[in-house]
C-alpha cells in the first residue's frame, strides 16, 4: 500500500511537471498578452514598460524557471490581467463551480439511477423506451444549445426561474454558497440541470444495463424461488450489485463534470472557475491558465487515487499496484 502510494505520487508529480511545460510553452508561442491588453494607441515605450513589468521580456526558459521556483513555494504567479495571485483568483471561484458540479452530480444520481433501473425492469414497455429515448437526447444534444433552450423556456417564456447569475449567497464555514437561500436555489436549478443532463443519461444507461444483466443471474432466480418480493429483490439485492460500476464510473466522471462546467458557466454567467479560465484564455493570462490546469489535474489525480483505494477496499480481489 505504502509503496503504491509513493509510486503513485511521484508519477503524479511527473504528470504535473510535464503538463506545466506543455501549457507554458503552448501559451508562450500563441502570443504576447500585452498585444491584447495594452491600449492600442500606447507608445512603443509604454509597450516596453508593460512587457518588462510583467516579466515577459525574459527568455522563455528563464520565465519557466522563475515560475517553477515560485511554484515550489506554493506561489503560482500573479495574474497579468488582475494583478492578484492566480491561485487566489481560482480558489475564490472554486466554491461556485463545486456547488454546481455537486448539485449536478446529485441530480444525475437521484434521477438517473432510478430511471435507469425502471427502464431495465420495464425494458419492453412504452415507459422503458421513453426513458431510453430521453437518454439518447441527453447524450447527443450539445450542452450550450440545451442551456439556451432552458433559458428561453423557463426564464423568458414561463418566467419561472432567473436566466443567470448566482443570486443571493450566504457564508457556510466561510465559503459562499447559494443552496441555503431560496433565491440562490432558484439560480442554481437551471445551470445544474443543464450540467446534469449528460451525466443523468450516463447513469440511466449504466443502471439499465446493470439491472438487465443482474436479472438474469442465478441469485435473482434463487431469491424469487425463495419467495422474496420483487421490491426487495430489486431495491436491495440488484441495487447493491449494480451500484459498484455505476459509482465507479460516476466518480471518475466527476472530474469531467468540473471541466465541462466551462460551457454551462458561460451560458448562465455562473461565476465559477470555468468562466474565469475562458476569459483568461481569451487574453492569454498565462498564470491563471497554468494554475487552473494544475489544479484540475491535481483534482483528477486525487479522485482517481481515491477511486482506486476505495475499489480495493470494496473488492478484495483487487490489489493495489500488485502486478507481479
Amino acid at each position: 500500500m505504502l509503496a503504491f502510494l509513493i509510486r503513485r505520487i511521484s508519477q503524479s508529480v511527473m504528470v504535473l511537471l510535464v503538463m506545466s511545460v506543455l501549457v507554458f510553452v503552448g501559451v508562450f508561442y500563441i502570443g504576447n498578452p500585452i498585444d491584447i491588453l495594452i491600449a492600442p494607441d500606447a507608445t512603443p515605450a509604454e509597450y516596453a514598460r508593460a512587457v518588462k513589468e510583467l516579466g515577459l521580456d525574459k527568455p522563455m526558459l528563464d520565465q519557466y524557471w522563475i515560475f517553477l521556483k515560485d511554484a515550489v513555494h506554493g506561489d503560482l504567479g500573479n495574474s497579468f490581467v488582475y494583478n492578484e495571485p492566480a491561485l487566489k483568483l481560482i480558489l475564490q471561484r472554486m466554491p461556485a463551480t463545486m456547488e454546481l458540479a455537486v448539485t449536478a452530480m446529485l441530480m444525475a444520481v437521484f434521477i438517473g439511477i432510478p430511471l435507469g433501473m425502471l427502464a431495465g425492469i420495464k425494458h419492453d414497455t412504452m415507459l422503458g423506451r421513453s426513458i431510453m429515448r430521453f437518454s439518447i437526447l441527453g447524450f447527443s444534444l450539445p450542452t450550450f444549445w440545451v442551456g439556451l433552450m432552458f433559458i428561453i423556456l423557463f426564464s423568458v417564456q414561463l418566467g419561472w426561474l432567473p436566466s443567470g447569475g448566482r443570486g443571493t449567497t450566504v457564508e457556510l464555514l466561510g465559503v459562499p454558497v447559494s443552496f441555503l437561500t431560496w433565491d440562490g436555489i432558484q439560480h442554481l436549478i437551471l445551470p445544474a440541470m443543464n450540467l446534469a443532463l449528460f451525466k443523468t443519461s450516463l447513469a440511466i444507461r449504466l443502471s439499465r444495463a446493470g439491472v438487465q444483466e443482474n436479472l438474469q443471474m442465478d441469485y435473482v432466480k434463487f431469491a424469487k424461488a425463495k419467495g422474496l418480493s420483487n421490491t426487495r429483490i430489486i431495491g436491495l439485492h440488484v441495487m447493491k450489485n449494480i451500484m459498484i460500476p455505476v459509482i465507479t464510473v460516476l466518480g471518475m466522471e466527476f472530474g469531467g463534470l468540473i471541466a465541462f462546467a466551462v460551457v454551462t458557466e458561460t451560458i448562465f454567467s455562473w461565476p465559477g472557475m470555468g468562466k474565469l479560465v475562458i476569459d483568461s484564455i481569451g487574453v492569454l493570462d498565462r498564470p491563471v491558465i497554468v494554475a487552473y490546469l494544475l489544479i484540475t489535474v491535481t483534482m483528477f489525480i486525487i479522485i482517481n487515487l481515491l477511486v482506486d483505494i476505495i475499489y480495493s477496499i470494496l473488492d478484495p480481489r483487487v490489489r493495489l499496484g500488485d502486478h507481479n
Binding site: 439556451l148 433559458i151 428561453i152 426564464s155 423568458v156 418566467g159 432567473p162 436566466s163 443567470g164 458561460t266 451560458i267 448562465f268 454567467s269 468562466k275 476569459d279
Partner: peptide, 12 residues
C-alpha cells in the same frame, strides 16, 4: 458576456 444570455436576461 454571452450575447444570447444577455438578451434573454433582458427579456425575462
Amino acid at each position: 458576456t454571452n450575447d444570447g444570455t444577455r438578451v434573454a436576461a433582458l427579456k425575462s
